[in-house]
């Protein structure tokens, strides 16, 4: 099992964010070890998306962030992306009027031309359906295909840490399971993953550790193998 003693892939310390006068995220600390799959669970309005947006600097926040031992607190979103912190946002964040091909190529925006082909091959291996729909406009695809594209585009950036915000949202259980299983495969290959998810059973199958967020604060940090039943989680949800 991964422990905090090794240099974490990402370590967030006392991270806080607010919208106007409302404290959406109270000072929060968490970490993801190299090659670890960590899930953040919590009810609606718990501050999960705010936490991810604060980590990736999409909103202003206070606190400290280190990535591979380097202080990245002052960096902007695009600089974090260059380091390998890539987020697939809630709602997929696709460029709807562009084709699948254009979306994927945009994912590799910082890649050298020679690297593009290999990365596309990897994505097509994971999601063959994207290969079939290369010239289709992204917004015209089904929800499941769009989510595959969102994950595929994030993978095109060759992430060191992949951050996903509710990738199963609005998807049929079978499709959601398929996408989350793919994330499990990627994690086995050594990719660090930080996943925000409401579908606890699916997420807990894959993750090594879970943080439970409620009312803008982390209520618990648990190794998933210590969670005997979902009732264990409920008391943290309704803190």
């Amino acid at each position: 099992m991964t422990t905090a003693s090794a240099t974490p892939l990402i370590a967030v310390s006392e991270l806080a964010a607010r919208y106007g006068h409302i404290h959406a995220l109270h000072p929060t600390s968490l970490y993801v070890a190299p090659g670890e799959f960590v899930t953040i669970l919590g009810p609606n309005g718990a501050g999960k998306t705010t936490l991810l947006r604060a980590i990736t600097r999409l909103i202003a926040s206070s606190g400290h962030i280190t990535f591979n031992g380097r202080d990245v607190t002052g960096l902007k979103t695009h600089q974090l992306a260059e380091l390998g912190i890539i987020m697939a946002p809630e709602g997929r964040g696709l460029f709807g009027d562009m084709t699948v091909r254009e979306n994927l190529v945009l994912g590799a925006f910082k890649a050298k031309p020679g690297e593009l082909s290999g990365r596309l091959d990897k994505v097509f291996t994971l999601f063959p359906r994207l290969h079939e729909r290369l010239d289709q406009i992204a917004s015209s695809m089904s929800g499941g295909e769009q989510q595959m594209l969102a994950v595929g585009r994030a993978l095109m950036a060759d992430p060191k840490l992949l951050i996903l915000d509710e990738p199963s949202l609005g998807l049929a259980p079978r499709v959601a399971s398929e996408i989350l299983s793919t994330l499990g495969l990627l994690n086995k290959e050594g990719l660090g993953i930080l996943l925000v998810e409401q579908k606890a059973p699916l997420a807990l199958k894959l993750a090594q550790r879970v943080y439970i967020l409620s009312s803008g604060s982390i209520q618990a940090e648990l190794p998933t193998n210590q969670i005997k039943s979902y009732h264990d989680l409920a008391r943290y949800y309704f803190h």
């Binding site: 990736t56 999409l58 902007k76 979103t77 695009h78 992306a81 260059e82 890539i86 987020m87 946002p89 964040g93 696709l94 460029f95 709807g96 009027d97 562009m98 254009e102 190529v105 945009l106 994912g107 925006f109 910082k110 585009r153 950036a157």
Partner: peptide, 19 residues
């Protein structure tokens, strides 16, 4: 493509490394 990504979603474009 970077310009059109900005038009589509500024946060989405920034998250892909576009300044």
């Amino acid at each position: 493509r970077a310009l059109r990504a900005i038009s589509g979603s500024e946060p989405g474009a920034a998250a892909l490394g576009i300044k």
